[in-house]
Simulated scan of single mutants.
Amino acid sequence: MKGPLFYAKILLFGEYGIIKDSKGLAIPFNAYRGALKSSKTLSEKAQQSNQNLLKFYMYLSALETDLVQFDLDRLKLDIEQGMYFDSSIPQGYGVGSSGALVASIYDQYAKNKITVLENLTRDKLLQLKEVFSLMESFFHGKSSGLDPLNSYLSLPILINSKTHIEPAGIPSQKEGKGAVFLLDSQIVGETEPMVNIFMNKMKNEGFRKMLNEEFVLHTDACIDDFLHGNVTSLFGNIKKLSKVVLTNFKPMIPVAFHKVWEQGLLSNDYYLKLCGSGGGGYILGFTEDFDKAKATLKDYKLELVYRF
């Protein structure tokens, strides 16, 4: 057996803010992908994946919900016969490795599943997001369901609020100088501890005020600029957002990158922001001149995501 491919995702804007109901914008990232496969002889990596699928099966078996039913007998049989998730998506890097796995399991084993081909009303999108949130909570403790949704639909998704999400049309890429890129921190991040730090910070009134009055404001402005192709305004807002994140989300930024972050703000060669929950993995970069950013960041591994 071989299941269809599901892609990685990048949350361009909205990390942490979407937990508190601000806007978010996620896009599929086709450079990394995964699919369910089966083999009688498993490599060490495939064996590990097979064991994880068994744990996931047990979690799904114990789920008490009317939202979704799975063909659990078939899932168990396939796992026993050597099914694993063959994926190039790096784990702990903020690009949705567990999201692609969740999407593939839903696609293969959910009964009466909502398909990508039908008319995706807002209600159906919200139902999918809720199902994926339940499923992905196995991996992260608490999940918005957005990563699997993005991977499943393979469309850019605009999150207006928890109850209002829609597919988004993003401007087609241009052969310009500007770019969105990934900067590899070469550290594996873990979502749950980062989310716990954030939730503890949320107990502080000053932090909540900053989140509403600065972080959310700049995030929403960035999304509007990006969707409307207002590149000049976008970079002004990204710089503000990058500053706010450096000041208020330091625990989520690997220590070795505090200076690199500051250097971008001072030189205006690039601006950095969190990619996912932070703590490691990828850091997201925006630049008006990708060649210049590459020269400045020559000691780091960069990956192109989108061109302006």
Rank of each mutant, 00 (worst) to 15 (best):
M1Q: 15
A8H: 01
K9I: 05
K9N: 05
I19K: 09
I19Y: 10
A26W: 06
I27K: 08
N30L: 13
Y32N: 01
K37D: 01
S39H: 07
K40M: 15
Q51E: 14
K55P: 02
L60I: 14
A62D: 07
E64P: 11
L67T: 03
L72T: 04
R74N: 12
R74L: 12
K76P: 06
Q81T: 11
Q81K: 15
F85Y: 00
S88Y: 00
S98I: 10
A103C: 01
Q108I: 00
N112T: 09
E118N: 05
R122Y: 03
R122P: 06
K129Y: 09
S133M: 09
M135L: 15
E136C: 02
S137I: 11
S143Q: 06
L149M: 00
L149E: 01
S151P: 11
T163Q: 12
T163H: 08
G169R: 07
G169P: 01
I170W: 06
E175I: 08
L182H: 09
L182Y: 12
D184A: 00
I187N: 06
I187L: 11
M194D: 02
V195N: 02
N196E: 15
I197M: 04
M199R: 13
N200W: 02
M210Q: 07
E213P: 05
V216L: 07
L217Q: 11
D220G: 12
F226K: 04
N230H: 13
T232Y: 04
T232W: 01
S233D: 14
G236V: 06
L241S: 13
V244Q: 08
V244T: 14
V245S: 10
N248M: 07
F249M: 04
V255E: 13
F257N: 07
H258M: 03
E262H: 08
Q263C: 07
L265H: 02
L266E: 14
L266I: 12
S267M: 05
S267H: 00
S267F: 00
G279Y: 01
G280C: 02
G281I: 07
G281S: 10
T287K: 02
E288R: 15
K294D: 03
A295V: 04
E303R: 13
V305Y: 05
Y306N: 10
R307V: 03
F308W: 13
